[in-house]
Write a protein that binds this DNA or RNA. Structure first.
Lengths: 232, 232
DNA sequence: ATTATTAATTGTCAAAAAGACAATTAATAA
DNA sequence: TTATTAATTGTCTTTTTGACAATTAATAAT
């Protein structure tokens, strides 16, 4: 039996930066850590990669376990592997960012885990290098969202242009002209206007839209230039 | 002493897809694998992550060891972690792609390792999932190069517009109009025209250019839209 | 010396996209 | 009927893109 003799072995984990949008602000979902060290401190959702699963599998499993949600938009970010990042034992962690419809999770209430949404700009200090992970995830979210129509993943099936507008402003941390935004987002051809209006936000009401799934699936990898003058 | 009891431990490796450009075609640098299994088969440059180094450190170490080059452009791609990807033992590998000036390595000749350049479109079958890694790296190279001025990393300090042009065509596997390309690339403001000409390629000769390092370092993260109508 | 040859370099115009602007509309409340 | 509020839509200028071929600078051939 051949072996890779004497090579060191490490723990491999996944950590998920879960983004949501409450209609006003960008939020992240954090949990109270359930094991030592740093037990009961706030941290990202994470877990070890099991013997029979890939890191992607592990990330999906962790999300399912902690939120009850499946089929979540999940994207591998990078690996965090500085030798000293976990004080107990060498652990490398694969960072993922996830986009979920915040209302789906709120409805879920599978609170065996103490999970809580925090404003992205007003969150507790996290364990280990999780603060860095959040910063990296935010940057990557902005980058990706400027080119690909992924922010829909944080909105309900039916959404309005003003909702989208606020979400884009939140993610990019900047003001965007309504007229130009509306033109740009409708010109993608990805939106289907519905007859119904959302009347909760104003007297006039805003028309609901839904995603054109066919075009979305066909074009999710295309460059859309949703934020042309973005500097990262 | 706290421990993460009973969690499985794995080997963690890095694999580098090393791209180069010979003036005509895009190439990758492969090595004859030096250990079992699959010894003497062609594979990517790789190695295990040591106890005192991060995956990034390991990738740099491997590149230094096998090519003699330091400060190489190196970018983390993704992790490859399917349970069965290494037949001997569970090994997760962090994939990197590297861009090097092919001439620097040719001059190096530190051939303790049997390394060889192959045309990207005419390469031997590789071990494990390395073929998939190459495909992924090529896609990511194309993606990144459409937005950021990274292809200069594969050219000598002094280069001509026609050289750049061919390189862009190679990477994108498409024909690009010379006039539009020239306009686009010069409008970035990243090129400094030199007085000297390269006379090897034609009677007229092509002016050399060099990178404006200041602007390059300042803007390497900015969106440049070098290939506007690219679909991935 | 003139001409042929070859690759580098440069130019124009129309179409599309972006950016900067504010007026109009559809509803409810007063 | 009017006031109020947020949603929606429009125009103009500038910039960028895309699609085209003529000119230039050298060497080689006659």
């Amino acid at each position: 039996m051949i072996e890779y003799s004497r090579q060191p072995h490490y723990l491999v984990a996944v950590d998920c930066i879960v983004f949501g949008f409450d209609g006003e602000h960008l939020k992240i979902l954090l949990v109270k850590r359930g094991l030592e060290p740093e037990i009961n401190k706030w941290s990202l959702m994470g877990g070890f990669v099991g013997a029979d699963e890939s890191p992607d599998d592990a990330a999906n499993r962790v999300l399912k376990k902690m939120t009850g949600l499946e089929g979540v938009y999940l994207e591998q970010m990078q690996i965090y592997g500085e030798p000293g990042r976990d004080p107990i034992e060498r652990t490398l962690s694969v960072g993922y960012f996830a986009l979920i419809d915040i209302h789906k999770y709120e409805a879920q209430l599978s609170d065996d885990y103490e999970a809580e949404w925090f404003l992205i700009n007003d969150r507790p200090k996290l364990i280990f290098d999780h603060n860095q992970m959040v910063a990296d995830a935010r940057k990557k979210l902005r980058y990706k969202a400027a080119l690909h129509p992924i922010l829909f993943e944080m909105l309900p099936k039916k959404f309005t242009i003003p909702q989208l507008h606020i979400l884009f402003e939140e993610v990019n941390d900047t003001k965007i002209d309504t007229r130009n935004f509306s033109r740009k987002i409708t010109s993608t051809g990805l939106l289907i206007k519905l007859a119904e209006k959302d009347r909760t936000g104003s007297k006039k009401g805003a028309f609901y839209f839904k995603l054109d799934k066919k075009k979305y699936n066909a074009n999710s990898q295309a460059f859309l230039n949703l934020m042309p003058n973005l500097k990262t």
